[in-house]
Design a protein around this nucleic acid. Structure first.
Lengths: 256, 256
DNA sequence: CGACATTTTGATTAGCCTCAATGGAGGTGG
DNA sequence: CCACCTCCATTGAGGCTAATCAAAATGTCG
């Protein structure tokens, strides 16, 4: 087993993988681990490129057997399930650098459908091979658990944040969250293009599309954002953050 | 490394563990894995008993460093976080046989506080030791990933199920879910004692306590349940299941 | 039995959904 | 180039659900 022993060109190899995966989460997987060159090779080998998906293409459907997890290189996707009445229920959006497919591990099949919102390229990581590898490379197993747990937990926290919140708060939370996530990948956290339609947005937030529209108007009127179609500019982040909290609490100055 | 090779008294040892842990999820951890006697010993050794918690006692608090995961033997707990306005937000209930503490893996500290709802006994499973062990025992690593993913995912699904649902649907979903979970441990799925107060219940479902009370009344009036204090009897499970779906869909006979 | 917490009940209000109709953007064919 | 169509986003009016406020009833525990 490869033990903590830096190898001369390790940094170079790591960079190669990171390049290969763009800025995808796979780099999170190797970065904190001291890997030997051969290990990096091994990891590199199991990562597969796929040809890009077009808008509307499905990466996998609910019920498909689980084989791989995926990292978004460029573009974006939505995960959704069908409620018993046949309505689409969007459960997550996936931006560049994020993983998807993790929720399938427990059941060996995907509980949700993943669909590209625009032209999207991905890395595919066959899961059994990753598992095999993680048994051999010390530290990788721990990283795998952490990242898995992290990605799933983030989603859960998002759901929790949205529950019990007013429509206004939900939109503020989502806009800030998207900004954070874009920011993490080197883009502007306050000025970005929404990859999803108002319809998808309202579906995800559990609101009627009409409410969504009214909210955008209100946010613009208040001077919190500038919005034109899918282009959004968060002009007053502090105000948005303020709204994030409980509305029932009267606004009080921090000093009081 | 111990390879798939049944050992004479393996079954006995497994049963011993299962007894030791009552019917806790740890049995899920070893059951599908072919373990050698020595492996079972190893697993057995790292599981620790703890003295029971009293009602109101906290197992861990949000922010505590993460060391172990826990399996509920008897009793029950609630997990909660504090929203920015200082309000308690209950994120999960934990019944006998279920695991808790898994959400701490990604951050090395607990994101939530766990508090006993009644006298509660637990098994403690030190995580680093479990990880070490899972590197040695084939299959255990996979099981660990699966169970983790499963527990976290179940919670997420619950949150999702509760989002975008009417108060009536939420209560129906929760009552059925609790029944399922009790049923899985050999108790009646239709007649049980709620371990939590109406207040906790309403908090978890994101409703006002008054609404909770009115809902119980309505459910009783409709003949769907019998309720006296915390004792609940689901008298019309089909009706409850029916309610679970989208209310906006007119009730239609399946055959139509 | 009295003090306290929890639960229930009643009246009112606010927020969001629904239905309905209008306004724009992008694509197609005359 | 313009008329037309379709899809999506916006705007308005009204209704329903669940929150809030207030208070009584019930249960719990010393």
């Amino acid at each position: 087993m490869g033990i903590m022993k830096p190898v001369a060109d390790n940094g170079v190899r790591l960079r190669a993988i990171r390049e290969a995966c763009s800025s995808c989460s796979l780099s999170d997987l190797c970065l904190p681990v001291a890997l030997e060159g051969s290990d990096v090779d091994a990891l590199d080998r199991i990562v597969q490129r796929r040809r890009p998906l077009n808008r509307g293409d499905q990466l996998y459907r609910a019920g498909n057997t689980f084989g791989s997890i995926y990292a978004v290189r460029t573009g974006s996707l939505k995960s959704s399930t069908l409620s018993e009445d046949g309505e689409e229920q969007i459960t997550a959006f996936h931006l560049p650098g994020e993983l998807l497919g993790l929720d399938a591990i427990s059941f060996d099949h995907h509980p949700s459908t993943a669909e590209a919102l625009e032209t999207t390229s991905l890395c595919e990581i066959p899961f059994t091979e990753l598992e095999l590898l993680s048994a051999k490379i010390p530290g990788l197993q721990h990283q795998l658990l952490r990242i898995m747990s992290r990605e799933i937990f983030d989603e859960q926290e998002m759901l929790l944040a949205l529950a019990r919140r007013t429509a206004e708060q939900r939109l503020a939370i989502l806009l800030l969250s998207l900004g954070d996530r874009f920011g993490r990948r080197g883009l502007s956290p306050t000025r970005y293009r929404l990859p999803m339609s108002r319809h998808d947005l309202s579906n995800y937030l559990g609101l009627a599309p009409e409410t969504m529209s009214r909210l955008f108007k209100r946010f613009v009127d208040q001077g919190w954002i500038c919005a034109s179609g899918r282009e959004v500019h968060l002009t007053d982040v502090p105000a948005l953050r303020e709204m994030t909290g409980n509305p029932n609490v009267r606004r009080q100055s921090e000093g009081a």
